[in-house]
Design a binder for these strands. Structure first.
Lengths: 329, 329
DNA sequence: ATGAAAGCGCTAACAT
DNA sequence: ATGTTAGCGCTTTCAT
């Protein structure tokens, strides 16, 4: 692979001039520009990225951290973020934490190593105390996940509202015994959603049962497990807020197996509006969240910080979700 | 962020020594090593990655090219490749082609720019002729997708066998009118699968019908569309090889809507053994492919090339798939 | 408009 | 065992 020096030599110009041509700088005579361009083409030259990065101290990379990519919601988010970043000539590197603190710390380390220019955290494994120190190395934006006081832009859904709305829907349909699923309870977003759920319950004068809160609900298999648990209970809920369409699908399938009438005996509300909602029987009533919008806003936020080098500050953008009515509620 | 020079100064050693400590070279007195380590810790120092890459001409990055990440099969593949690469201290960068030739060319360009050390192509948009020139910049491995004469390692499934086996299953069950779905027909892998299908047909003395070949079959929605088409036909197939569980799910759902008895009136065979197979009604009989194995072997292959700088040569590893019997066939 | 020269932060050959 | 020095390939002052 030729270097800029060789191109300069062959074009009979200095490497400064070649660099100018490469970067579309003005003040290069048309004649030399053409000559350089020809040599570049002939030699099949492309500048070395590492050298450029070292010199300019910019990588044009944004790291995005997610639990793992084999998850319909995060996959969709990544797809959109990548496409959006490309609009700004930035490339997205996906980093999977696999729910490990340590892997998340490796992501923020990338900032320190000047391996990426900025970071978007779509989940949060560590305490914010352990992350905030990295802010001095570059901007961090939080998307999807929220945090109470992180002094960074946060683009998120109104989880409280979603929790409230969904629960309210059950109540309107006459349910009094409502269950709730979540990934885990250390996620602030999940907490907010649960708060909305609890509020709707208390606003309606309903009690909540401890054993009707199911955690570690991610997959179809988890849905099976949860339904098995419900089936074995003496006092059963008649409605369940799943927080995830995969889980809803699993519950519906297993409930049918146990001959439950859905939604009469057990109403099931999904979350995410994934395509799986349309293939279960009955089809899944779910909460639609604006993933594309979230992706776009998150990329815009990080790009803004990158370009303006403006001071990072807390700035929460909250997005509304809406209920998509199908058959399971 | 401090540089290696500052660390050297503060430790009263040369930067060579610091570099040695950093890279675990021998021949550093324990005393100096400790001193350096302390300063590094105190100063919160991490070496600049771009500088390292420029100097060492290694990036420790592997680019993996896929159509897009929001696809259950590719998501699973990526998850496994990323995890596997980490074992060798390599990081995977996912690049999505969105089925565009031009995006795929950007991926191979990364090799030329020294932005990645090697590439794994999991799909192929361009003619091999337009890719092979990049081999002089670094190793390329093909995984999942195949190519007739590409002179690189190819880790793939036995698509012919899968096509044959699946079709044979239908025939054993007494079907004579069998339809076939595929993404597109410029994919060599898809071609092989189709060949297996055709061969099984002809071995059984069965004809194939042009209008029973459905292309552009990727998603649940495509499944709906295909089922609509089938339903409108005067001469309908009684079995369909879908090539993808999402498509199978869509077909099953829509067929139920039209009151088809599955598998009696319409047998449906999936592909990939995704978790969605277990939530449809009836559950999807499918072809299980060893994704984890493919990921592992592909990473091993590229690492091998990277380490040994051995000559690239064609070397095809073919993996068998197996039928998972559920209810839809 | 163009070029000479400095230097980004690091590693490694070479000398001691 | 340790340090001196060169240089990876590029961009950017600064001078002309």
């Amino acid at each position: 692979m030729p270097t800029i020096d060789e191109i300069a030599k062959l074009s009979n110009v200095s490497k400064t001039t070649v660099s100018r041509v490469l970067n579309n700088h003005p003040y290069v005579s048309e004649e030399k520009r053409q000559r350089v361009l020809e040599v570049i083409k002939k030699m099949d030259y492309i500048p070395n990225t590492s050298a450029r990065k070292l010199r300019s101290n910019k990588t044009m990379f944004i790291a995005v951290s997610i639990p793992h990519v084999d998850h319909p919601f995060f996959a969709r988010l990544m797809k959109n973020m990548s496409a959006e970043a490309l609009q700004y000539q930035y490339k997205v590197i996906v980093f999977q934490t696999f729910y490990q603190k340590q892997n998340e710390l490796k992501v923020v380390d990338l900032l320190k190593r000047k391996e990426v220019d900025g970071i978007i955290l779509c989940s949060l494994e560590n305490d914010w105390e352990d992350i905030k120190g990295y802010l001095k190395y570059g901007p961090i934006v939080m998307a999807n996940e929220v945090h109470a006081e992180a002094e960074v832009p946060v683009i998120c859904y109104d989880e409280f509202e979603a929790g409230y709305k969904g629960t309210e829907l059950f109540i309107k349909k006459g349910h009094h015994s409502i269950a709730f699923c979540c990934d885990n309870l250390y996620s602030k977003a999940q907490m907010m959603r649960k708060k909305g759920f609890m509020r709707a319950l208390s606003d309606a004068g309903l009690r909540f049962h401890d054993q009707w809160i199911f955690s570690h609900a991610f997959t179809i298999q988890d849905g099976f497990r949860i339904m098995d648990q419900i089936h074995s209970m003496t006092e059963k809920p008649t409605a369940i807020f799943t927080g995830n369409d995969q889980v809803a699908a699993g519950i519906i399938k297993r409930a049918s197996h146990y001959q439950y009438k859905i939604p009469q005996q057990l109403a099931v509300l999904g979350y995410d509006n994934q395509s799986i909602c349309e293939v279960t029987n009955p089809e899944i009533t779910t909460i639609d969240i604006p993933v594309e919008d979230l992706a776009k806003k998150a990329i815009e936020a990080i790009i803004h910080l990158l370009n303006n080098k403006s001071v990072l500050k807390r700035e929460v953008v909250t997005m509304s979700s809406s209920i998509i009515t199908r058959q399971s509620v």
